[in-house]
Nucleic acid binder design. Structure first.
Lengths: 155, 155
DNA sequence: AACATAATTGAGAACCATTCTCAATTATAT
DNA sequence: ATATAATTGAGAATGGTTCTCAATTATGTT
């Protein structure tokens, strides 16, 4: 299958190749899906959407691809408490910008919020620094998330 | 089996009974385990330790009990990223005090920290309030956690 | 103290997201 | 065009957790 020179050629393929990994139709399909279909997609979501573009893709490949992209830092893997990982573009050309999540524990709706992000980032940076020093950890990531009931589920 | 009137009688049994649930040897064993064996135990950990006190206990019962205690607010269920839930007493008579977690993604060591807790709580409270108002969520809980490599794993 | 009844239990089966296996295919450097 | 290692699809396997169900038991009532 011919690889189209799309907008991905510029931003992601280089990163993939840089790690000695190959550009394949399956990876391209996943990339397209992630940039088209919004945030917090489950592997199954990605599989279904990618199948439209590339009908032969297998679910295992989707998992492997998402794992690779996560390792390369292109994708964020989220846990929103329902035993299914969710994926979205990490900060970068296709990303929505740094945000955190507010999750409804009843209907599983996920709201991305950016309110208080500056204060959060300041505190997170400060905490990371303090914890690194005190406990000797090299901190790589954090999770900050709120759970509750959305308006519809609360009533 | 006779239920001993131990220190739990005062703090937890009332809570359990208050919800129309019964005090049983299995629940007592889990309670003892949680108060004796430290933090962030997996269900399997709780099962093994509780089996010593009450050899007939079943794993399913441990899961059910931990779920119940979590629902009653006595226990916190944590996800530290390794596909096994972990449990510990929530804030209360037996709890260690409010803390957050620093997790080594290599050896899975978990450090409880309380540094910056005041600032964190302030920000969390403020954020919860802001998000409640803006998005109409009734926020019930939050997760704030750091991932990285501990000193031993980093080198 | 024994009864009635609904809650609880243990054991194993079932579930289900994810990972693994392996032979076949394919991207890429030469 | 070729060689080679990476990648793939399909289905099996994994493993933590939940479910099922008949048997047991805690608790309020007599």
């Amino acid at each position: 299958m011919k690889i189209l020179k799309g907008h991905h050629g510029n931003c992601c393929c280089g990163k993939i190749r840089g790690f000695g990994r190959r550009i394949t139709p399956a990876r391209h399909a996943v990339l397209d899906t992630l940039s088209t279909r919004g945030e917090h997609l489950t592997a199954e979501d990605v599989f279904k959407a990618s199948s439209r573009r590339y009908p032969n893709i297998g679910l295992a490949t989707v998992y492997r691809t998402l794992e690779l992209f996560t390792k390369l830092g292109m994708v964020s893997k989220l846990d929103t408490g329902d035993d299914k990982a969710r994926y979205e573009f990490a900060d970068g050309p296709h990303a929505k910008g740094h945000h955190h999540h507010l999750v409804c524990t009843s209907c599983r709706r996920i709201v991305d919020y950016t309110d208080f992000i500056k204060e959060e980032m300041d505190l997170l940076r400060k905490t990371e620094e303090g914890l690194s020093k005190k406990y000797g950890f090299k901190i790589n990531s954090h999770v900050m998330q709120f759970y509750g009931l959305c308006r519809d589920c609360a009533r």
